[in-house]
Design a protein around this nucleic acid. Structure first.
Lengths: 335, 335
DNA sequence: TTGTAAGCGTTATCAT
DNA sequence: ATGATAACGCTTACAA
């Protein structure tokens, strides 16, 4: 496989000149450039990225650590991040963390350092106790959760506000017994907890009581768990006329579970989700949801990372970007 | 950032000894090893992967080129490939091709060579005319289509057979006017064409006529196009009692479109898809489909690549692996 | 068991 | 406008 030296020899110039041609540096005479390009074509020359990386100290690749690509929400997000990274000439290498804290920490670990120029990390399992682990010497952007005061840049969803808006929408449509289907309620910064908080705020604002029986925690925010829980809620005789699901994925399961139990949506129970995954628009009934503007979030996450890549270490203040959101109203909450 | 030299100095040994410790080579006295490990910890040493790559001539990363991650099928496949690659100690870098031929060729292009040790390429846009482009000097595995006699390893779906089985299932359930929703029917090796062929075979075997009006080509195999087409079929007065959709994604759209048109599934029309994406089980009605065993396909694709990585060039024969399949029968085709 | 030397292919710097 | 030199950090020989 031809090297820069081979090309230089073939073109009768120095390696430096070849390098200058490759990198579009000025100060190369057109005639020389032509000669070099011809030699490159003749030898089928390809730059050795490893060598360039070593010399430059950067890899042109960023890491993206997400729980699992095989979930509509993360697939959507990842796609948007690839696109945004591509605009900056960056490649993306993916790590699946399985939403497990240890894997999220491993992705952060410097052992992977210099493999990526920076890392976009979707924290699900990590908690406030892990803030120290975020202090690494390459740029990191946390995506999707809201860990206030963390030592790194942060792109977050408006979890509390949007959840309150979704719940308020159910109430405005006439629901009085609104259930919430969420994950386990752990420390305050976890997604389920934040969205549950928004739910409660909306109930309180509407003067509705917060019945603990209406809080349905499932072990995993999957379709299967959503379906199972919905069936159990009906079978257990729970009195409810609306459900706020903290993700669209679990909402899809809930819709199925309610159908299994013979409950009609939206006539008997209204359902709203969160994330606006593509599938929601095509369900029967179609799913009302919160749209957090994935593309903008991806754009910002990559943008923040790129900004850090350019400048040196930690002098600048950490940025926090909270995406705007909108409600997408469909059949599952129509009157 | 500490280098191997720094560690060597700190531990009072040579760089070589440090390298031996890092790589678990034998012939390092336990005492020496301890001293080196201590120095590494003290200096917070991390290997520079770029340097190692340059020296070794391999990157430990494979490329995965798929149309778009934000589609249930490719998300599922990608997740399985990450997992399989991880078992071999390989990282995966993703390229989105948008199903466009030029991007698939670009992923193949040697310009990206030596960035990846090998490439898993999901060909959608490329055709038989592009076989030459597959002759690159790093390992490539083609995934998902069936380009017979290609110069590279190949993991394929049993497109024709499985489509025939799906169509036959509709016929066995009593359908006599079975429509097919597919993409554009171009050259023989494209997925839509292969699956359409299977559909036709099943019709012929059952002695049913092949009415061209029942072949519904959509410009893109998306949910939106599926829904639109289903509505159009009903609005246009097409006589049909079954639909074979060449992907689950388009089938989800078809289900929605039929619901919009007031057609009941499965009572009036039965629907079957292809891919067995997770969502299918939770739709109302749940979607019958073909399960091509994604995990096995991913496992084989990575396995074939790894086998090539180990050995040298092109001496061995190209492998072709066709995944087994099974029908998953759910409500959309129940009687 | 450990160390020395050389080079992987590229580019920044400084000359010419 | 072009070239010589010296790294970037690591590991494969080979030597001690």
């Amino acid at each position: 496989m031809a090297t820069i030296q081979d090309v230089a020899k073939a073109a009768g110039v120095s390696a430096m000149t070849v390098s200058n041609v490759i990198n579009d540096h000025p100060n190369v005479r057109p005639a020389t450039r032509e000669r070099v390009l011809a030699a490159m074509a003749r030898l089928d020359y390809r730059v050795n990225v490893a060598a360039r990386n070593l010399r430059k100290g950067r890899t042109g690749t960023i890491g993206l650590a997400v729980p699992e690509l095989n979930r509509p929400y993360y697939g959507r997000l990842a796609a948007a991040i690839f696109t945004a990274a591509g605009r900056h000439g960056l490649r993306v290498s993916v790590e699946q963390t399985g939403a497990r804290r240890e894997n999220e920490l491993a992705a952060l670990s410097l052992s992977r350092n210099r493999l990526y120029d920076g890392l976009i990390l979707s924290t699900v399992g990590m908690g406030p106790a892990d803030v120290e682990a975020l202090k690494v010497d390459h740029p990191v952007v946390i995506l999707g959760e809201r860990i206030f005061g963390g030592p790194v840049d942060h792109v977050a969803m408006p979890n509390v506000e949007a959840s309150a808006a979704a719940t308020r929408h159910l109430i405005e449509r006439g629901c009085r017994r609104v259930a919430v289907v969420c994950g386990e309620l752990r420390d305050e910064v976890h997604m389920s907890n934040l969205r549950h908080t928004g739910y409660r705020q909306a109930l309180r604002a509407a003067g509705l009581p917060a019945d603990p029986a209406l809080v349905q925690s499932v072990p995993e925010l999957t379709m299967a768990e959503g379906a199972r829980r919905a069936r159990a809620m009906v079978a257990g005789g729970l009195d409810f006329d609306g459900v706020f699901c903290v993700t669209d994925t679990v909402a899809m399961g809930v819709l199925r579970g309610l159908a299994d139990a013979g409950v009609r949506v939206p006539e008997q129970v209204k359902v709203i989700g969160f994330d606006n995954v593509d599938e929601g628009a095509f369900l029967v009934p179609s799913l009302s949801t919160v749209d957090p503007d994935h593309d903008l979030m991806a754009e910002r996450a990559v943008g923040l990372l790129v900004a850090r890549l350019g400048s040196a270490g930690p002098p600048t203040e950490q940025e926090e970007f909270v995406s705007p959101f909108s409600l997408v109203l469909r059949e599952s909450t129509s009157t």
